[in-house]
């Protein structure tokens, strides 16, 4: 794109490396400290551990309810994403492919949610969930995350439908297929790239969320990772090996997941905001 001489290129490369170090440094410190004892962390913060030990991980895993936090985070993400995909793709199908009175108005009503920060409505949501007796259950989280994902997902899918030819549907309709079957068998497979974007966008949103578990979940065994780690920090203030172990357990899986699917992640998260 830009035509630069080699001096300019070298300067740019140096600045990129510096920023890369600013990114890596905190994560590297965290990673390595997770293999140290508390004593080593304090005495020799920059050195490598004398003996690499997994003690802090084992301790963090057992002392805190990490196995439960992990399981809860996975369940909540999976259920919410499946619900979002199903509900939004059906809705998007109707909005994109059929004409009926009020179609445009309903579409605008749904995408208005793109800019309503859900947490601003938290008091009535909290009261509603409480009146269903769903507070302190994972169901509360399924519902809130599904509701919060509908606007963006429907918006993206409606737009994507415009790239899918209608002819395939007409052929199926002549064969007598019902509306749901046409959606399920013909459109859903063609929607796959958009469904992937929707999945990743919502996965990051749900997996990393702290606010709704904070409001809804009290029982330790029902906490997700971000909320679980919060108490952990309150309780083990001085056992720094445990703290770093816990942070590593929380962070490393998501980084590995990202490195495997980095292109889809970047597309999912940047399109989520700009598209």
């Amino acid at each position: 794109m830009l035509k630069l001489n080699s001096l300019q290129k070298s300067i740019i490369l140096i600045l990129l490396v510096v920023w890369a170090l600013v990114n890596i440094f905190p994560l590297g410190v965290m990673f390595i400290s997770g293999f140290k004892t508390t004593r080593e962390i304090f005495m020799d913060p920059f050195g490598l551990p004398k003996k690499w030990t997994f003690n802090s991980y084992v301790k963090a895993w057992h002392v805190a309810n990490f196995a439960a936090y992990f399981k809860n985070s996975i369940i909540v993400s999976l259920v919410s994403i499946v619900l979002i995909l199903f509900v939004s793709s059906m809705g998007a199908y109707v909005l994109a492919r059929f004409d009926f009175p009020g179609r445009r108005l309903i579409y605008l009503y749904i995408i208005a949610g793109l800019v309503l920060p859900v947490r601003l409505a938290i008091i009535p949501i909290f009261l509603l969930i409480r009146s269903f007796r769903l507070n302190d259950t994972l169901f509360a989280l399924f519902l809130v995350y599904t509701a919060g994902g509908i606007s963006f997902s429907t918006f993206l899918l409606v737009n994507f439908f415009e790239n899918i030819p209608v002819d395939l549907e007409d052929a199926a309709r002549i064969d007598g297929a019902g509306v749901f079957r046409i959606y399920w068998q013909i459109n859903l497979p063609l929607l796959r790239p958009a469904l992937a974007t929707v999945t990743i966008f919502n996965f990051i949103r749900v997996w990393n969320d702290f606010f709704f578990p904070l409001i809804f979940i009290d029982t330790d065994a029902k906490k997700t990772i971000p909320l679980g780690i919060q108490n952990f920090f309150g309780e083990f203030d001085i056992q720094w090996d445990l703290l770093f172990g816990a942070l590593n357990i929380a962070i490393i899986p998501i980084i590995i997941f990202f490195l495997i699917l980095s292109r889809q992640f970047i597309a999912g998260l940047t399109e989520g905001a700009i598209k």
Binding site: V87, G91, Y93, V94, I110, G113, A121, L128, T154, V179
Partner: peptide, 13 residues
């Protein structure tokens, strides 16, 4: 097919 999305969105947002 539009009802589930509309209902959940209306109720919780």
């Amino acid at each position: 097919m539009l009802v589930p999305a509309l209902a959940i969105y209306t109720m919780l947002i």
